[in-house]
């Protein structure tokens, strides 16, 4: 390898969200995965984690040892759960107290992972089987190499989307939440249903999206400091409306999946409300797009 090339690679190393394309075959997972993935250590406090998530726009953060061995994953859902459990145990705790919680107390250890030279169709099968929207790409010694998200897969396979319509793939009666509910009720619904995004309704009209990510944005954002002096109990009794994003993509049920993907891809949400003449017909997420991907001949 020439000197210049080496220099170039070293230069690449420090830059986030750039694909390492130099030495992987185009059909392997590593070619499409994002590397290096964002990772923190077990001792990182929640405040720092939130900062990283919000400032850099990452939804999932891996937990790894200093030498790069994969230990777990933290997503907004884990943070939201921790908030709910803590507010149950001791509602009088000041909100600021939980900000020092180490990542080790939040993380989930069951990370679904894949080898770097596996094929992309294998990654789809794994995602569907475990119903996860990302895979950790690890080498034989469990060292974290990259992250492959459902978005990466769909970008690769967007020409293989079935020609079906949104109405055939959407979930028809999605779990929703009314805008006047409390944050506690919203989070309870989220955790028990296993959905991290809930369409939000006001007088039975869809108005937005209530998601674990919007809660994390709130916790890591400026708005949070207005509530910094409160207790957890007080925080959890805020209304869902404060955590609802008002502009998620909206689709008609008669739109083709390929067009729908173009729309969803451009937005930062990865899901869309399916609305027909003002009322909610269904909900479409990245996982539904994955169902529409045709693998093989």
């Amino acid at each position: 390898m020439s000197k210049d090339r080496e220099k170039g690679l070293r230069y690449m190393k420090g830059r986030p969200r750039k694909r390492v394309q130099s030495y992987s075959s185009p059909s392997s997972v590593l070619y499409y995965a994002t590397s290096p993935p964002l990772s923190v250590t077990k001792t990182t406090p929640l405040s720092r984690l939130l900062e990283t998530m919000v400032a850099r726009g990452f939804r999932r953060v891996f937990v790894a040892t200093a030498s790069g061995l994969l230990e777990g994953i933290v997503t907004p859902m884990e943070i939201v759960k921790h908030l709910l459990w803590k507010s149950r145990e001791s509602p009088g705790t000041p909100v600021m107290d939980i900000m020092s919680t180490p990542v080790a107390r939040l993380m989930r250890k069951d990370v679904v992972s894949i080898g770097p030279s596996e094929s992309m169709s294998e990654s789809i099968i794994l995602m569907k089987k475990n119903s996860v929207n990302s895979l950790a790409v690890v080498d034989k010694s469990n060292r974290l190499k990259a992250v492959l998200t459902v978005r990466d897969v769909l970008e690769r396979f967007n020409y293989s989307l079935e020609s079906g319509f949104v109405k055939d793939y959407m979930s028809k009666s999605p779990v929703c939440i009314s805008i006047d509910r409390s944050l506690r009720e919203g989070v309870e619904t989220m955790v028990s249903s296993g959905h991290r995004r809930l369409p939000c309704l006001e007088k039975s009209k869809p108005v937005g999206l209530f998601s674990s990510r919007s809660i994390v944005r709130f916790l890591g954002g400026r708005e949070f400091f207005k509530h910094a002096g409160e207790t957890l109990g007080e925080l959890m009794s805020l209304s869902v409306v404060d955590f609802t994003v008002r502009d998620p993509p909206v689709l008609d049920p008669q739109v083709r999946m390929t067009e729908a993907w173009e729309m969803v891809k451009r937005s930062s949400y990865g899901s869309a409300l399916v609305v027909k003449s003002g009322s909610l017909e269904g909900f479409l997420t990245e996982m539904d797009f994955l169902k529409a991907v045709r693998i093989g001949p």
Binding site: R88, S131, S192, G194
Partner: peptide
């Protein structure tokens, strides 16, 4: 009544607690 949908045991206990 909350109806659980593929939730792990730890979360179930935490949800019920109290």
């Amino acid at each position: 009544t909350l109806y659980l949908n593929s939730v792990n045991d730890e979360d179930i206990v935490q949800l019920a607690l109290g």
